[in-house]
Amino acid sequence: MTEAEEPITLLLNRMCAGDPGAESDLATAVHEALRDIARRHMDRERADHTLQPSALVSEFYLRLRAMKTYGFENRRQFYSLVAGVMRRILVDYARRRSSEKRGGALQRVAFDALDDPEAKNVSPDAVSLYGALDELRSLDSIKADVFEMSFVSGLSNAEIAEVLEIGTRDAERARTLARAWMGERLRA
């Protein structure tokens, strides 16, 4: 019982070995795992039905601790894969809600640290959020990556720096700028 049996670790192993099929299998497995975690989150957080992507993803990583023992090196590739899957989940989730006609006030996705009173009135959806993120990526892909990692994957500055192979201070700065830029863009 020390370790959960994770086919994901095996897939990672295969991906490290360069098995091309592993990546798509991995995406499927990650998708499955994230949805599974999300479901349990929704269950637990029945009171306010808040889905925090970073909480979700960090729990997912906790499950993947075996990663280290397998000497998984290509973390950036993996994180971008997870972020991609997360994006699909969120956008898909928003779309699906939209096809429901009944009010749909029950669930919301809240993103971390919502302190800005002014911004409270504005409520971007996953679709426009990712739209803005794509725009940022077209201007500056590093900032977009930093944003996605901090926001979706909940990585710390130090972790982002490590994954992207940049300095911690650079990561920190990129994160501040990216968040400000995204905030402005979504408010516009």
Partner: peptide, 11 residues
């Protein structure tokens, strides 16, 4: 200041 809240309702 950070990101505004994301309401699925708005989505």
């Amino acid at each position: 200041a950070t990101l505004p809240e994301l309401h699925i309702r708005e989505a």
